[in-house]
């Protein structure tokens, strides 16, 4: 006697195998990221066959024709634009988030949400192009320097590009603070600003920090916009107005003229690997913060 009809059996079998398909596509994420680390890292680390790590990380002499592969100026450039853009963009973004979450009338918040999405939708080449046609000449005129390309121009453009990340994630964090905390503070006679400063911001701090770190990840990896305004000169910047270069901008400028597998090409891959490690580190920090939030 057949307890389960054949048709039903097929269905159950189907159900069983679909599950494996789902697991396979999910595992693909892990496979992809591991492959990226292995291949970019593997290609990059080949550099050390010809260049000592000491030279790569601590020398600013970048002259591939003369077999000098010191990437210090690019590393410093990347870190400098990231920190500067956060200093410029984070206060504005955070203030905007507070405004959207607690102060703006409902209709204005409704306009600002899609507006922050639009910020993300603008392509980075367009940001770079506007930087090139507005910000660089502006710096040249008003700061009385003769070039205009450099750290300041790149940081201003990046500060604008990271705004949506900071605004939207911080706003979510602020809105997630329980209403009772806010009401308790107001009931004690605190003004709105005192409530925001002493109650809301401390409670939303993990979310705010996450937004800032994600913004840093975006800034450090941004390629096109930075390349168009930073001047692309392999030298250590000693002022905000000096043309210099960052890890991603240098890669995009030089990769095209580099034979694949040469020491020069490998050094560029190593720079990409440094970027990769930096962005993975940021993810680990964010996870740390998120775990603390639960406890």
């Amino acid at each position: 006697m057949q307890l389960v009809s054949k048709e039903h059996k097929t269905k159950l079998l189907y159900d069983h195998y679909m599950r494996y398909l789902f697991i396979a596509s999910a595992s693909l994420m892990t496979i992809i990221i591991v492959t990226i680390i292995v291949f970019v890292g593997g290609q990059g680390l080949l550099t050390f066959k010809e260049v000592s790590p000491l030279d790569f990380f601590f020398s600013a002499k970048w002259d591939p024709m003369g077999l000098e592969y010191g990437a210090l100026s690019f590393i410093v450039g990347s870190l400098a634009v990231t920190v500067l853009s956060i200093l410029l963009g984070a206060p504005l973004g955070l203030a905007g988030a507070i405004f959207m979450a607690k102060i703006a009338p409902a209709w204005l918040s409704k306009i600002m949400r899609p507006a922050t999405d639009l910020y993300v939708a603008i392509p980075s080449v367009v940001y770079g192009f506007v930087g090139l046609t507005i910000i660089v000449p502006f710096i040249r005129t008003y700061f009385n320097v003769n070039i205009g390309f450099g750290l300041l121009a790149a940081s201003i453009i990046l500060a604008i590009m990271i705004l949506p990340t900071i605004v939207s994630i911080s706003e979510d964090a602020l809105r997630a603070v329980p209403k009772s905390l806010e009401e308790a503070s107001l009931a004690l006679g605190a003004t709105r600003w005192q409530t925001i400063w002493h109650v809301l911001l401390p409670s939303a701090l993990p979310g705010i920090l996450t937004s800032i770190i994600l913004a840093m990840a975006r800034a450090v990896g941004e390629t096109m916009a930075v390349q168009m305004v930073i001047g692309n000169t392999p030298q250590l910047a000693t002022s905000l107005f000096m043309p210099t270069s960052t890890l991603p901008s240098e890669i995009v400028v030089e990769m095209g003229n580099t034979p694949f597998g040469s020491a020069w090409g490998n050094a560029l891959f190593l720079m990409a690997f440094v970027l990769l490690v930096l962005s993975l580190l940021m993810i680990l920090i964010i996870r740390r913060i998120a775990r603390k939030k639960v406890i």
């Binding site: 595992s27 994420m29 892990t30 990226i36 991603p248 990409a272 962005s279």
Partner: peptide, 20 residues
């Protein structure tokens, strides 16, 4: 692990993806 991988993949700079 899958979640960590997805989050990591989301922050890989696009120039690194390009080189990969």
């Amino acid at each position: 692990l899958i979640r960590l991988s997805t989050e990591s993949l989301a922050t890989v700079p696009s120039i690194v993806l390009g080189l990969f």
